[in-house]
């Protein structure tokens, strides 16, 4: 079954948190360095966050929320996140995609 979630990179390998940072960053065409500069962290830390290898502080999580203009729960979750497209349009995967 194809991965219908936004967690292909933001899995909770160590942090226990799923996130959409990579998807949001790609969607807005922002580089790791630009995001890191805006948040006052090292660009390596953005990579760690995206892979779910690091669990951010509340301050950093709210910083990300402010940067993307989204609520924190739209970026982080303790459960696998649904794909944004599916969430926005309320559509599940087409049957042929689900069968794969």
């Amino acid at each position: 079954m194809p991965d219908n979630s936004d967690n292909s990179k933001g899995g909770p390998s160590e942090s226990g948190l799923y996130n959409r940072i990579a998807v949001l960053r790609a969607e807005r065409g922002v580089s790791r360095q630009e995001l890191a500069d805006a948040l006052g962290v090292n660009y390596q830390t953005i990579g760690f966050l995206e892979r779910g290898d690091y669990s951010p502080s509340l301050k950093l999580a709210f910083g990300l929320s402010e940067y993307f203009g989204l609520p924190v729960e739209a970026i982080f979750s303790t459960r696998p996140l649904e794909a944004l497209s599916a969430q926005v349009y309320g559509r599940a995967l087409p049957p042929h995609e689900e069968k794969r």
Binding site: D37, G40, N42, T45, S57
Partner: peptide
């Protein structure tokens, strides 16, 4: 500056 100061992960 980001190369001088450790962020929270560092």
């Amino acid at each position: 500056d980001s190369e001088l100061r450790n962020d929270e992960r560092e």
